[in-house]
Simulated assay, not measured.
Amino acid sequence: MILILSMLLDAAFGEPKQLWDRVPHPAVLMGRLVGWCDQRFNQGAGRKAKGVAVAAGLVVTGLAIGWLIHLIPDHGALEVLTLAILIAQKSLVEHVRAVAQGLRQSLDQGRRAVAMIVGRDTAQMTGPDVARAAIESAAENLSDGVVAPIFWYLVLGLPGIFAYKLVNTADSMIGHLTPKYRDFGWASARLDDVLNLIPARLTALLIALTHGWVDPAPILRDAPKHRSPNAGWPESALAPVLNVALSGPRSYNGMRKDYPWVWPEGRRDPGADDIDAAADALWRVWAVLLAFAVVIALF
């Protein structure tokens, strides 16, 4: 019942700006913790060992926070609110739809909107580039921001979701193959890969099933092409149901990367309508997850 109420609360209210203008969002606090670890330990010798210790410490911290909340008498309402905050469904959909709205106004508006949700260079993007980036972000963040948190909550309760979110935050901040983070962020990146192995594949399955896509061959073919062991799964499921070719060439920090296409048979000219279709797909998956939560509550 707690998961049901949390999902409905998030779907109804999302991220109330008035609240987070007054108090720090938990994601901000997690980011500050990871940032402090980066400044404190990412220096000198033994950075890889320090990174392993930091990743382990983040897991223990997350487990401890969730466990402490469970110890609070009559903590049900607090658990509902906490879980609703840590599930990012409505916020994700709003950010994705904002790209479609911006792209309908102008290419520059679309570029500005998509820059809020992707890390690649946006200044020279064409309209289809903007649409592809938004759709890919929708697929990846559906897995990372919605399915995985719910999965780890079902497995370990609040301790599980807090531990997952801390590791996922660390991966986004320090899990990069740059000279600064190659060693220090290695453990956080690898642990995030492990924690997302099942959720990413589950997300791909849910996307396919909710759109009547029953042929696993294209997913099995295209998912391993992705540079991430997990992100390719939801992308390779969403691409064929939208009939849009995803991934492909893009630029990071001024460097062009010629990544292989996902669903190369698909259209190469996606637009705002395809972004909206991707947002609709997010809600379809959410609805199935909610129905699953109802079944768990009943039985």
Rank of each mutant, 00 (worst) to 15 (best):
L3N: 05
S6Y: 07
L8S: 03
A11M: 15
F13L: 13
E15S: 04
E15K: 06
P16L: 00
M30H: 04
G31V: 07
F41Q: 12
G44Y: 09
A53M: 14
A55I: 01
A56V: 12
V59M: 14
I72R: 15
E79T: 13
E79P: 03
A84L: 03
I85M: 11
I85A: 05
L86S: 11
V93R: 15
R97H: 03
L103Y: 04
L103W: 11
L103N: 07
R104L: 09
Q105E: 12
Q105F: 00
Q109C: 13
R120S: 13
R120Q: 08
A123K: 14
M125S: 12
T126Y: 07
A133Q: 03
A133L: 07
E136R: 02
A138Q: 02
A139C: 11
A139E: 14
A139N: 13
E140H: 09
N141C: 10
L142W: 09
I161W: 06
I161V: 15
T169I: 01
M173Y: 08
P179M: 07
W186Q: 03
L195G: 04
L202I: 10
I207A: 14
I207M: 06
L209E: 14
H211L: 04
V214S: 10
D215M: 11
P218Y: 08
P218K: 00
L220M: 09
S228Q: 09
S228R: 13
E235W: 01
E235S: 05
S236R: 12
L238Q: 06
L238A: 03
V244W: 02
Y252Q: 09
G254K: 04
Y259N: 12
W261V: 14
E265W: 06
P270R: 01
I275M: 01
A277D: 04
A278K: 03
A293S: 13
A293W: 03
V295Q: 04
F299M: 07
